[in-house]
């Protein structure tokens, strides 16, 4: 097995690209963000001192173990959740509450079941006062972008999971947001559909003036899509590292086995699934071992399936 390069090594082209990105204006800035939840079990510190910037047309992925606060973070950015301290600035202005300048795609199906595909996409423009005709024109355009023109008059329940998420993307993009927030949008899809959706999303991103903050717990997905990966750790949720992905663009599925890709993935693995340290279990691991201890055998000892 060949020795992998360091994930920090960047080719000339990649380094130049990152330099160019750094020249662009900052769309989203998060400064000293804290989030605490009060609940019956006491206080949970979901996020602690989160700081990062996202620049125009950058693709940033957020990754981390379950319960590390990824959804909390993106919901705060979307304005669906309040934060306990810190600032969220969009184009240098603090955000309060949800708004059309931030589009959101949820993991679960969030399409309005009572509206056809086209009407779902028209929802945003109509709410913001577009005439029916121009809203419809916009909707058709964006349905074309996600390749679902033929399904304009279908209801969401008649579509496959992947198609529904494409509609959700079109519905968010039609508002022409400054940033598209996506919370594990492909988490519920099967591997094949998921791969297709990733390629499709990259295609859209390449052709539009759109900045994307994308949450996932799938390492391959993060590396495949992102310029930079924000790695969170749990209990409390803190930024562990921000990784500049050294895999050159345009990204192709063939790159999954490239050395840069594997090196990055190794690094992410190490960050997210650290080797067990003696005696000092992280809370997440403590939870896992508690689960194992609780498993009761319901079968005869002699009747061992293994």
């Amino acid at each position: 097995m060949d020795a992998l390069p360091s994930y920090l090594d960047q080719s000339e082209a990649v380094r130049a690209r990152f330099a160019r990105i750094r020249q662009r204006e900052v769309i989203l800035e998060v400064r000293g963000l804290h989030k605490r939840y009060q609940s019956a079990q006491g206080e949970t510190e979901a996020l602690r001192d989160i700081n990062f910037k996202v620049r125009r047309r950058e693709f940033v992925c957020v990754i981390g173990p379950s319960g590390c606060g990824k959804s909390t973070l993106i919901r705060i950015l979307a304005g669906l959740e309040s934060h306990s301290a810190g600032d969220v600035l969009l184009d240098d202005k603090p955000v309060s509450g949800p708004g059309r300048d931030r589009g959101m795609v949820f993991q679960g199906y969030s399409l309005f079941p009572w509206l056809t595909v086209k009407k779902n996409v028209m929802f945003g423009p109509e709410i913001s006062g577009f005439s029916h005709d121009s809203a419809e024109r916009e909707a058709r355009l964006w349905l074309d972008v996600v390749g679902l023109s033929k399904f304009a008059d279908a209801y969401p329940h008649e579509l496959s999971g992947g198609m529904r998420q494409r509609v959700a993307i079109a519905r968010a993009l039609v508002n022409q947001p400054r940033i598209l927030l996506m919370d594990e949008p492909f988490g519920a899809l099967d591997a094949q559909t998921r791969a297709k959706m990733q390629t499709h999303l990259l295609e859209i991103w390449r052709n539009l003036d759109i900045t994307i903050l994308f949450i996932t717990h799938d390492l391959d997905e993060a590396i495949y899509l992102a310029d930079r990966v924000l790695v969170l750790k749990a209990h409390p949720g803190e930024v562990q590292e921000v990784i500049e992905v050294p895999v050159p663009r345009p990204r192709l599925p063939g790159q999954f086995s490239s050395p840069e890709f594997r090196a990055t993935k190794d690094r992410l693995e190490a960050l997210i699934h650290p080797a067990e340290e003696d005696g000092d279990l992280s809370p997440a691991l403590a939870e896992d071992s508690a689960l194992q201890q609780h498993m009761i055998r319901f079968t005869d000892v002699a009747d061992n399936v293994e």
């Binding site: 979307a78 304005g79 669906l80 509450g97 949800p98 708004g99 059309r100 931030r102 589009g103 959101m104 949820f106 679960g108 199906y109 969030s110 399409l111 309005f112 929802f123 945003g124 709410i127 913001s128 959700a168 519905r171 968010a172 508002n175």
Partner: peptide, 14 residues
């Protein structure tokens, strides 16, 4: 009612 629907609508400006 699925809370996500309301949240989706809010992010769309409702």
């Amino acid at each position: 009612l699925e809370i996500t629907l309301i949240e989706a609508a809010r992010t769309l400006g409702t």
